[in-house]
């Protein structure tokens, strides 16, 4: 057994941009990005589902790419540009993917929805989905226990042409 480390002394400074806002933070190295967002920054739109990278509820965009915030250590995001569900809309104007989820009624309970939408925006940035089969395959990292999948596919399909090549 080793002595318990002094947890305060292990804290690290962290600078990152979250939803366009520059942040100077202090974090424990073991704080996940998900816990930082939810517990320290009150950005609770990003959800904790499985906390093991299996459900996708915690999906956020780091430098335009979708990742699982639950398996990301916050300390490793130094200098990153992060966009969460709270940062997608332009003021009162919803992001096309958010609007498409409403238009297509692509949710029931809504718990997986922030992750679904961020994941779908990441999918749009990747530019690899050309049909509904592609969308299904490339959205497979986001589980929906209500089973709203068919409407989710419809929403992503509707929004894709509106945001292709766009980076939030």
């Amino acid at each position: 057994m080793t002595a318990t480390p002094d947890q305060g002394a292990l804290q690290r400074p962290l600078q990152m941009t979250i939803n366009g806002e520059h942040k100077t933070l202090t974090v424990h190295p073991w704080t996940t990005l998900l816990d930082l967002l939810r517990e320290q920054l009150d950005l609770a739109g990003t959800k904790k589902g499985c906390d093991h990278g299996q459900c996708g509820a915690c999906t956020v965009l780091r430098d335009g790419k979708r990742i699982n915030a639950c398996l990301t250590l916050a300390v490793m995001c130094e200098g990153a540009e992060l966009v969460t569900i709270e940062g997608l809309a332009d003021g009162d104007r919803l992001h096309p993917m958010q609007q498409a989820f409403i238009t297509q009624d692509a949710f029931q309970c809504g718990y997986c929805t922030p992750g679904q939408i961020c994941s779908a925006v990441g999918l749009a940035n990747e530019g690899r989905a050309h049909n509904r089969d592609d969308i299904r395959e490339l959205m497979s990292g986001n589980l929906c226990r209500c089973g709203a999948y068919s409407n989710i596919v419809a929403a992503v399909e509707e929004a894709l042409p509106l945001i292709k090549g766009a980076r939030p």
């Binding site: 990278g53 990742i67 699982n68 994941s119 490339l138 990292g141 986001n142």
Partner: peptide, 9 residues
């Protein structure tokens, strides 16, 4: 393998 999110990481 994995999911798009995991493959990005």
């Amino acid at each position: 393998g994995a999911s798009p999110q995991l493959r990005n990481m």
